[in-house]
Structures are given as structure tokens and as C-alpha cells.
Amino acid sequence: MLDTFFVNAPEGARWPLDIDTLDQHLQERFPGMNGWIRNAPALGQDYLDFDIVLDGSRRTGSYYGGGPLILNDGDAEDWAPTIAWLLSLLPSGTPAVAMRESNPEAITPLPADPSPVQIQQILEQIAPE
């Protein structure tokens, strides 16, 4: 099921990863990535808006400095490796939570330093019934 996934620091916390640094890492991981720095006036904050190709399909995402990471138009299998990779850019053990747009009540903590398989399983478990 295609969905939008949100990965963030727990409430009241921020990740030590700015948008320029993530932009650089995304370009290295996904050659051909398109990225734009945009402004969210309601938040008074810039964010990175990007698109990449995964398994032959264009996928889009956004990242706000310190979190959240928002990944659109994919399923748990599509996005789990990217989420694990992003979390590996953070200091080991940095806490994170995940949510699906289709089930916003299920905000779920991710384990410390999770593998793509663990993330995929968690994202699949929080899918709406």
C-alpha cells in the first residue's frame, strides 16, 4: 500500500542533522536526485524538498532541519532502507519515532540503530487495518 511515512525525533527533541548536510548525503546516495530548499512560512523554517528514483519509480520527500523526514508515494519496503540509512547519519542510539499518514494515531518508537528489515516490519505493523 502506497503511503506517506514520517520519521522524527521524539516530541521535544531534535536531530543534529541540518538540511544542507542531508542534501549532500542524499546526492551522494542517490545520483540524479533533485533537491530544492524551500520555506514553510507557517513554520518560519526552511526545508529540503527532494525527489529520487527508487526501483524505477520517482519518489518524493522532505526534510526539516532537526526532523521530521517525510517520505511520500511508497510502501514500507521502498522506504525502510532509506530510513535506516538516514538514522545511520545520526549519532548511534539517537531516538526516532515513525508514523504512517494512513494511521496517524500509531506513533511508534524505532529501536536504536535499526536495520532496514526492522524498520520495514514496524512500518508494516502500523498499517491501518
Rank of each mutant, 00 (worst) to 15 (best):
L90I: 07
L86R: 07
P10F: 06
Q121D: 13
I37E: 10
D78I: 09
S92Q: 13
A96Q: 08
D51V: 08
A98M: 05
H25A: 09
L2F: 14
V53P: 13
F50V: 01
F50Y: 14
V53M: 08
L48K: 00
A13M: 15
P41V: 05
T82K: 01
T60P: 02
T4S: 13
I119V: 15
E77G: 15
H25R: 11
P68F: 04
G65I: 02
D23H: 03
L48G: 00
L89A: 04
M99K: 13
L71E: 04
D113Q: 01
M99T: 10
D3K: 08
V53L: 07
L26W: 04
G12H: 07
G65A: 14
E11I: 08
R59W: 12
P111T: 09
E28M: 06
T21C: 02
T82P: 00
D46S: 13
P16E: 03
Q120W: 11
M33F: 08
I122M: 02
L43P: 06
D23Q: 05
P114L: 00
T94V: 06
I107T: 07
G61M: 07
L43N: 07
W36A: 05
F5Q: 02
F30V: 01
W79K: 01
R59L: 13
R59S: 07
Q120K: 15
E11P: 12
N8A: 12
V7R: 09
S88P: 12
F30G: 00
A96D: 06
G56V: 15
G74S: 10
P10I: 03
I52D: 04
R100I: 03
T94M: 14
Y64W: 14
L2T: 13
P41S: 10
P95I: 09
Y47H: 10
L43Y: 09
L110M: 03
A127G: 10
R58F: 05
P81M: 05
P31D: 01
P68N: 10
V7N: 06
G65S: 13
I83Y: 04
N72M: 10
A98I: 11
V97I: 13
A9V: 09
D78R: 09
Y64F: 15
P68Q: 01
P109M: 02
P109S: 12
H25K: 06
T21Q: 09
L90P: 02
G35I: 04
F6Q: 07
A13W: 14
A80Y: 12
L48P: 05
Q120H: 11
L87E: 08
G66F: 03
V97M: 06
V53H: 11
Q45P: 05
N72D: 13
L43I: 04
R38D: 07
L86Y: 06
G12T: 12
Y47M: 06
A84C: 07
G66I: 07
L89V: 03
P128K: 06
P116T: 01
D49G: 08
I70A: 09
A96L: 13
W36H: 12
D23C: 02
N8F: 12
G93P: 05
T108C: 04
R14P: 04
T60F: 14
I19M: 06
Q125E: 13
T82G: 11
M1C: 12
I107F: 00
E124Y: 11
L90D: 02
Y47C: 02
N103G: 00
E129R: 13
P114C: 01
T82Y: 00
E77A: 15
T21L: 01
G65W: 07
I119R: 04
Q118L: 09
H25V: 03
S57G: 12
A9R: 09
S92T: 11
